[in-house]
Simulated scan of single mutants.
Amino acid sequence: MMEALSWRTACLVVLCVLPFLRPAAGIRFVIDREECFSHNVEYEGDTVHVSFVVIKADTPWHYSEDGVDLVVKDPNGGQVRDSRDKTSDKFDFIVQKRGVHRFCFTNKSPYHETIDFDVHVGHFSYFEQHAKDEHFAPLFEQIAKLDEALYNIQFEQHWLEAQTDRQAILNENMSKRAVHKALIESAALIAASVIQVYLLRRLFERKLGTSRV
């Protein structure tokens, strides 16, 4: 009877916690030269997961692998991590000082760039044995780990989707450039043919005029 009650209680706890699992969160923004974002980290020792992908430029004719710079700074302004000249990157770091961390992007390209950016803070809450029932302390800890594992999967999926979007846009732009290049080459070939015909006609007209004289 007590075992059945414990299982019912455990199921009830899981059902109550599941609606509060954190959804995958990311933003897409357009950068001109520099853009900074802030994220508060409440606990030292937490793991911060970061990912970004340069989705596209504001012109289909621009294609470059120069990428952007990302610099991460702690609450005191000290540099924690940086990523230079990359079109996409994914990394994590351990928080040494809790507080507001800044994530600053720098665009060296003359064009506006669209960037997909995602930040997630991984934190485990450990429940003391004397503060909770001995059967529920491990359960709450496993739920916290499950929450983190699910979000890590969503974090990875979000990054892969951004990579797929970038590749699709690059392929579309390359196709457009190929079509435009073919049209320009065709127009140039037609123009050259017309000029050749015109020059040949002038040449024959001059020869005919000379022979008549």
Rank of each mutant, 00 (worst) to 15 (best):
M2A: 04
E3D: 13
W7D: 11
R8C: 12
R8Y: 12
V13C: 05
V13M: 14
V14P: 00
V14Y: 05
V14W: 02
V17S: 07
L18F: 08
F20S: 07
P23S: 09
A25Y: 08
A25W: 04
G26M: 03
F29K: 00
I31Q: 05
S38N: 07
S38T: 03
N40P: 00
V41G: 06
V41D: 01
D46R: 00
V48C: 04
V48D: 03
V48Y: 02
V48N: 01
V50W: 13
D58V: 01
D58P: 00
T59Y: 07
P60E: 06
P60M: 04
P60C: 09
H62V: 13
Y63C: 14
Y63W: 15
E65Q: 15
D69L: 10
D69M: 08
L70V: 07
L70Y: 03
V71W: 01
V72I: 15
P75F: 05
N76F: 06
G77L: 04
V80S: 10
D82R: 10
D82Q: 13
S83P: 10
R84S: 07
D85K: 08
F93R: 02
K97A: 13
R98A: 11
V100G: 01
H101P: 00
H101F: 15
R102A: 11
F105Y: 01
T106H: 04
N107K: 04
Y111E: 02
H112N: 12
D116W: 05
D116K: 01
D118R: 10
G122C: 09
G122M: 13
Q129V: 06
A131G: 04
A131V: 09
A131Y: 04
D133V: 10
A137S: 14
L139W: 01
K145H: 11
D147K: 12
D147C: 10
D147N: 09
D147W: 14
E148S: 12
A149C: 10
L150K: 11
I153Y: 15
Q154S: 14
Q157V: 12
Q157C: 09
W159A: 15
E161H: 09
Q163D: 05
T164K: 08
D165M: 13
R166V: 05
Q167R: 08
A168C: 07
A168H: 11
E172Q: 14
M174V: 03
K176L: 11
H180P: 00
I184S: 08
A192G: 14
A192P: 03
S193R: 12
I195G: 08
V197C: 13
Y198L: 10
L199Y: 06
L199C: 09
L199S: 07
R202Y: 15
R202V: 15
R202P: 09
L203P: 00
E205F: 12
R206S: 12
G209H: 05
R212D: 06
V213T: 02
